[in-house]
Amino acid sequence: MVSFGSSSSGPQFWIASDRLNDRKVAFYSNFLLKETAVSHLVSIQAQVRDPAAVIAACTRLKLSAPINCTVRLFSAQETGLAVQLPGWKYPVVCQTESGELKYDDFGGRWGDRGELDRFLQAYAVEKAKIEARRQGHSVTEQQLADGSIRVQIAVAG
């Protein structure tokens, strides 16, 4: 879940792992946006498109650096940034041109989906930080007890 809000110190948002849709090959993470200043909910489809944020997420999680290559999954070959998650038989392939993730975890038997949740959470946090800093804003973050990560962006100016 991602929620945005405002305070006297600037806009804030929180990012936490979302429950994954049970898709075997193609994956899109759905995050729920909640605007706290206005009472409405908006659903968006988050896509993994930024190679720098993929690298930063891997570094954050102490994973091996992603490799741009073609990998063999159980029944297919996929090309993109290959990320090897802990305990996964096959890597997750980030196709940054389309934003899709390709993987085969055999319904969780070949990899714990919680590791994919952690990677997507780390990607979302790192992407938010990259974009905020690109626009000249400062960023702080805090790990919360429930596993979510609070990212606060102080808007410059």
Rank of each mutant, 00 (worst) to 15 (best):
S9K: 09
G10Q: 10
P11Y: 13
P11G: 14
Q12C: 15
W14K: 15
W14M: 15
A16L: 11
S17L: 10
D18W: 03
D18Y: 06
L20E: 05
L20Q: 05
L20A: 08
D22K: 11
R23W: 10
R23E: 12
R23D: 13
K24W: 07
K24L: 09
K24C: 09
V25I: 06
V25Q: 05
V25K: 03
A26L: 15
Y28H: 12
Y28T: 13
Y28V: 13
S29I: 04
N30M: 08
F31M: 06
L32H: 03
L32P: 00
E35G: 15
T36P: 09
T36A: 12
T36D: 13
T36L: 14
A37M: 10
A37C: 04
H40A: 09
H40G: 08
H40T: 06
L41K: 11
L41H: 10
V42N: 02
V42F: 04
V42L: 05
V42W: 04
S43P: 03
S43A: 05
Q45S: 14
A46I: 02
Q47N: 07
Q47A: 10
R49F: 08
D50V: 04
A52K: 11
A52I: 05
A53I: 01
A53L: 03
V54P: 02
A56F: 11
A56V: 08
A57D: 03
C58G: 02
C58R: 00
T59N: 01
T59H: 01
R60M: 00
L61I: 10
K62A: 12
K62W: 06
K62G: 09
K62Y: 09
L63Y: 00
L63R: 01
A65L: 13
A65W: 05
P66W: 00
I67F: 06
N68A: 15
C69Y: 08
T70H: 07
V71Y: 02
V71G: 04
R72A: 15
F74L: 14
F74S: 14
S75H: 14
A76S: 11
A76P: 02
A76M: 09
A76N: 09
A76T: 07
A76R: 07
Q77M: 14
Q77D: 15
Q77F: 12
E78H: 09
E78V: 04
T79V: 03
T79C: 09
G80W: 00
A82M: 03
A82I: 01
V83Y: 01
V83C: 07
Q84S: 10
Q84D: 07
G87E: 01
G87Q: 02
G87W: 01
W88K: 06
W88G: 08
W88L: 10
K89I: 13
K89E: 12
Y90E: 10
V92C: 06
V92S: 03
V92K: 00
V93I: 05
C94H: 04
Q95L: 12
Q95W: 07
